[in-house]
Design a protein around this nucleic acid. Structure first.
Lengths: 131, 131
DNA sequence: TCAGTCACTTACGTCGAGGTAAGTTATGGG
DNA sequence: CCCATAACTTACCTCGACGTAAGTGACTGA
């Protein structure tokens, strides 16, 4: 058996080029949920800082429950900081951290990919379905 | 009211910089599921072409059911091509398309981000949890 | 006194992603 | 005759993501 048969074997830990594969999966799972990207991108478009109700209006279709839990997850992951102002009615502002802002770069790469290739995906799906 | 109050308003369609927001969400949802990235990255590491059982061994923990459905989705989206060889026992090979290979670039950006920033995410989570 | 505001939380129900295990098909080899 | 093999499919179940709707608390202005 030569090297050509060996090269087909794959070290399980080597997926994702030796980084922690589970970290990559967790990250993708997080930003792959229904609302996280929209909230992150909207927060960025709003200048990196906005209050709850602004985000609610900025992300069409999101409910208070989902916005709340999405923001809570982002806060827990260190992507945003939550600041409470002790007023009545209450005011809460969310600000992107440096960590969160850094995530925007690779995310934008996917956004661009979708812009350029999604039509092709749609066509492939149509071809596959009619048959 | 000046421009500073207007700028906080957000055109719903403008999320993701005017590309189709739903396409971006669908894309993220697809590669954000449990197995797709692992399958795609493994297929790439195996030279862009591999048979079912090779992928099964390459992706630790995946079941035949999930590998089968993940590959079917990738095929439907035009990311891989399925080739059947009429032999016994059967042989089926999966090959990445140009479209699929193009997706690797932005995906690698996220992999790199995880490599460099995941430790920081873990720390943020710990800080958040103990409190 | 009462309604309105904001930023939530709680309760409840649905639906689909994903896990486990077993079955299937066709054939060559012992 | 029977088993192994590859690449699946099918049946069944669980659990969590997500939706909807209503409640909450503290204060202000009418």
């Amino acid at each position: 058996m030569g090297a050509s048969s060996k090269i087909r074997q794959l070290d399980p830990a080597a997926i994702c080029r030796s980084s922690d594969p589970l970290a990559v999966r967790e990250l993708l799972t997080k930003i792959g949920d229904k609302w996280t990207i929209f909230v992150v991108l909207s927060l960025d478009l709003l200048g990196g800082r906005a209050r709850f109700s602004e985000l609610e209006r900025a992300v069409p279709g999101i409910s208070q429950r989902m916005l709340s839990s999405t923001l809570k997850n982002l806060e827990r992951d260190g992507m945003v900081i939550r600041e409470v102002f002790p007023e009545v009615p209450p005011r809460v502002e969310y600000e992107m951290t440096e960590l969160g802002r850094r995530l925007l770069h690779p995310t934008q790469g996917l956004v661009d990919w979708a812009k350029e290739n999604w039509e092709q995906v749609r066509e492939a799906q149509s071809r596959y379905d009619e048959r």
